[in-house]
Amino acid sequence: MDRKMNFRLSIDLAMTVLMLVAMAYQMTGNLVHELIGVTMFVLLFVHNLLNRRWYGSIFKGRYTVCRALSTATNLLLLVVMLLLMMTGLLISRDLFAFLRIKGGFSFTVRRLHTFAANWGLILMSVHLGTHWAMIMGIIRRMTGIATQSRTRIIIIRMLVALVVLYGVKSSFDLDIGSKLTMQFTFSYWDFEKAAPAFFIAYLSVMGIYIATAYYGCKLLKKWGKVTNE
């Protein structure tokens, strides 16, 4: 694996980790939350700069269902992240306090910020899922795993099923549905009692969309091969 690919993957991993930590606003406090946000958007700029050729390829080549899903996800993720940045600037209390809006409209902007953050995490998960085969291939090369094992595949699939099931439960615990539809919610996580559980819950929610995108595309590719024979 070349250095450029290593660097790209490091940026993607850093953005994912920062996105998760940013969700824990009550634990980090406002200033750290805003610093994380600024760092994320610097990384987003670098990520798009490194992948700028992708934008030129959007209208080239044949589109499969999986490619259409991947393209739509990437474009929506960019829009959502820009919305997250703009709303973050408008409600900033520390780094960009001079841009802060006041009054009743600020409440709507906060809800938009929460809306964009949760959709951003889900779209980021789908994005990872559509590239999961490549990620797994890199992990196999790094660990020296050259052959497939039926036992290992069964164990992995069982673990995935458990993650998805826990992710469904966590979606209710975190009240994800309300946040994705901009509904007002009184749900708050008690970080003093269960801080690690918060990140496990969000990771399991991400697992739903990573698994759905990965296995969905895998099935579609297999189905495409069968119908073309």
Rank of each mutant, 00 (worst) to 15 (best):
L220H: 08
L20S: 02
L44Q: 08
F198Q: 00
S125I: 06
L90E: 01
M81I: 06
G120V: 07
L174N: 03
H127V: 04
L165I: 12
F191G: 00
I154F: 13
V79Y: 02
D190M: 15
T16S: 14
H131A: 05
T114D: 02
I138D: 10
M142Q: 13
V32A: 04
I200S: 03
A201W: 02
D190S: 12
D2L: 07
Y202N: 12
F105E: 15
L18P: 01
A213F: 08
D2Q: 08
F59W: 08
L159F: 14
S10L: 14
G224E: 15
E192Q: 14
R110V: 05
Y25S: 03
K222Y: 10
I200E: 07
Y214E: 10
R93N: 15
R141E: 13
Y166A: 11
K169Y: 12
C66T: 14
A201T: 00
M86T: 09
L128Y: 15
L82D: 05
I91A: 00
E229M: 14
L18G: 03
W223I: 14
L31M: 12
K225P: 02
F115P: 03
F59N: 12
Q26N: 12
W119V: 05
M206Y: 04
L121R: 02
S70P: 01
N51P: 05
R150A: 11
A22M: 07
D173N: 13
I139T: 09
A213W: 01
A211N: 07
T147F: 09
V109S: 00
D175T: 06
H33F: 00
F45V: 13
F41Y: 09
L76I: 09
Y55C: 05
V168G: 08
C217N: 03
V38P: 03
A14N: 01
T16Q: 07
L90V: 04
N51I: 02
L44T: 06
I36A: 01
L219S: 11
V109T: 00
T108S: 15
V126M: 04
Q26Y: 09
L82M: 10
E34Q: 13
M124R: 09
F191Y: 07
N118E: 11
G120I: 07
T108W: 05
K169E: 06
A161C: 11
D175V: 03
A72F: 11
F186D: 08
Y25M: 13
L84M: 15
T16M: 11
V46A: 10
L219H: 06
L35K: 07
I200K: 12
N51F: 05
L128N: 04
L203G: 07
T185K: 02
M81W: 03
Y63A: 11
W132V: 06
T185F: 05
A213M: 01
V80Q: 05
T87L: 02
M158Q: 05
V46C: 10
T130A: 10
G37L: 12
V21Q: 06
W119H: 01
M23D: 00
I135H: 15
N48F: 02
I145Y: 06
S178N: 11
K60I: 03
M142R: 14
V126E: 06
C217L: 08
V32M: 08
M182W: 01
F45D: 04
D94L: 06
V42G: 07
T130Q: 08
Y188A: 12
M19Y: 14
A24M: 03
L49A: 12
R8C: 14
W189S: 04
D175K: 08
G104A: 15
T87F: 01
I208L: 09
I36F: 10
R3C: 10
I210E: 05
